[in-house]
Simulated assay, not measured.
Amino acid sequence: MTEEKFDTVMKIHNYTPYRMIHALSGHWMDPANRAMTKTVINISSTSGLHGAMGQINYATAKAGIIGLTKTVAAEWGRYGVRCNAVAYGWIDTRMTKPPDPDEKVVIGGQQIMSGIPLNAKKWRDTSDIAVGRPGTVEDAAGVMLFLSSPLSAYVTGTCIECTGGRYM
């Protein structure tokens, strides 16, 4: 893997969340906003928790999100800010569907095909997922809804795995 590819993934998955959180810091730390509900939900991945062959950049970035989450939770809790992360497993999206040769993403003038190849049998095998299927976007959204609701008012600095029971 080139350093350029490594850096690009780090910028997308680490620098962007950091910059978004940093942009809120002055507003959220203002004592006038103490009573306001303030919640940060970062997106990690099981790759950040367990590693992923061929994805050293992505796994490193997603592990970094967990460190960012825990640090913001520790430092900003006194300002009424809760910060958590969700480590998603296989969620059925266009990024995890088999590649479509007609659908490409262009980054820096380079065409990149999205999707996970059909021959990635180990990854596509659902036998180690307790619920026996990939997650849906509704499954993914449900965790976010919980973390953004008053039901999670005493939850901060944690990473919830949304995996259907894979990696138990």
Rank of each mutant, 00 (worst) to 15 (best):
2 T>S: 15
43 I>Y: 01
121 K>E: 02
49 L>N: 13
29 M>I: 05
62 K>E: 10
15 Y>C: 14
160 I>M: 13
79 Y>Q: 08
125 D>R: 03
15 Y>V: 15
111 Q>M: 09
138 E>N: 10
41 I>L: 01
80 G>K: 05
20 M>P: 05
115 G>S: 02
114 S>E: 04
3 E>F: 13
8 T>F: 12
130 A>S: 06
125 D>L: 08
127 S>Y: 01
142 G>L: 02
96 T>W: 01
97 K>N: 14
68 L>H: 11
100 D>H: 00
168 M>C: 12
165 G>Q: 04
68 L>M: 14
120 A>N: 03
113 M>S: 10
8 T>G: 11
50 H>Y: 14
157 G>K: 03
142 G>F: 01
156 T>R: 04
71 T>Q: 08
60 T>C: 13
113 M>G: 08
117 P>C: 03
46 T>L: 12
77 G>E: 04
69 T>K: 13
53 M>F: 15
18 Y>M: 09
118 L>M: 10
42 N>G: 07
59 A>S: 10
42 N>V: 05
9 V>D: 04
106 V>S: 09
30 D>W: 12
100 D>R: 00
49 L>A: 12
165 G>E: 05
129 I>M: 03
141 A>P: 02
13 H>R: 07
120 A>D: 02
49 L>V: 11
37 T>I: 10
147 L>A: 09
118 L>P: 03
156 T>Q: 05
36 M>K: 14
27 H>F: 15
70 K>A: 07
35 A>R: 14
77 G>M: 06
115 G>M: 00
76 W>H: 07
17 P>F: 08
58 Y>W: 11
139 D>N: 03
135 G>S: 01
99 P>S: 05
160 I>Q: 11
